[in-house]
Design a binder for these strands. Structure first.
Lengths: 125, 125
DNA sequence: CCGTATCCCTGACGATACTG
DNA sequence: CAGTATCGTCAGGGATACGG
């Protein structure tokens, strides 16, 4: 799991996908964490969330804008430049995400082990 | 949103469905909260979660059992009796759920208002 | 009472290609 | 650069009915 301000990109194959907690849709939580460090451009978000297609990222951002979690600012330049930034409401999710991350660090390995054990033991002798 | 030990049934139409946080699948969080008060039978869970079909509840419980969140105990009686109980791992989610509930009380109305405003203003003058 | 079996529908998600 | 358009897939979830 990448940490908030890591230059490291988010890995969609990371075990956090097994998290029993979801913030909004699949990418919402990661977008919040990307934007925690300040405003970001569409392309920057895409690079950080390297597995997300532009369509899905656009959908995610539009939904977040609708819910008042981010603001979208388009600068009338050429080439075009658009920046997304967390609103106070969006920032209010950070604490919750941190709590979820703390839970994951403490308990996710336990859950994963239980799941693995269940897979290895579908037919007990 | 019903409180954990309310005799009140969970209302699937309650605004918590708009929560940007999900614990596992749709019903997992509610099951955890139902079981917080102690072991419950399949039928008791169904009554509390009055909108869930037996198929979906069974799926949810099997997934939770696989992940080590609940234990299933079948008593060899007639009529049959089966009880579900939280494991320590399952109980560890309660704190996270409470945190999410606290976020909801503080911020969900805000989010809902933003969403409503966005609906009312798709075409600004 | 405690589930399972079927069927179906919708919405999330992704691949690919194209545009202002 | 910042998206949109189109198409397809797949799993979650529900209705209904039946079984041990």
């Amino acid at each position: 799991m990448a940490t908030p301000r890591d230059p490291v990109t988010f890995d969609p194959a990371c075990p956090s996908s097994a998290m029993p907690i979801r913030i909004g849709d699949k990418w919402t939580g990661m977008v919040v964490r990307c934007l925690d460090g300040g405003p970001r451009r569409f392309g920057e978000l895409r690079q950080t969330l390297h597995a997300v297609t532009p369509k899905v990222l656009a959908e995610t951002l539009r939904a977040m804008e609708r819910d008042g979690l981010v603001t979208r600012t388009a600068y009338d330049e050429n080439p075009p430049r658009v920046e997304y930034e967390l609103t106070p409401l969006g920032r209010s999710l950070i604490g919750l995400i941190d709590t979820a991350r703390a839970w994951a660090e403490d308990h996710l390995p336990h859950l994963l082990a239980a799941r693995q054990a269940a897979l290895a033991r579908p037919c007990e002798d």
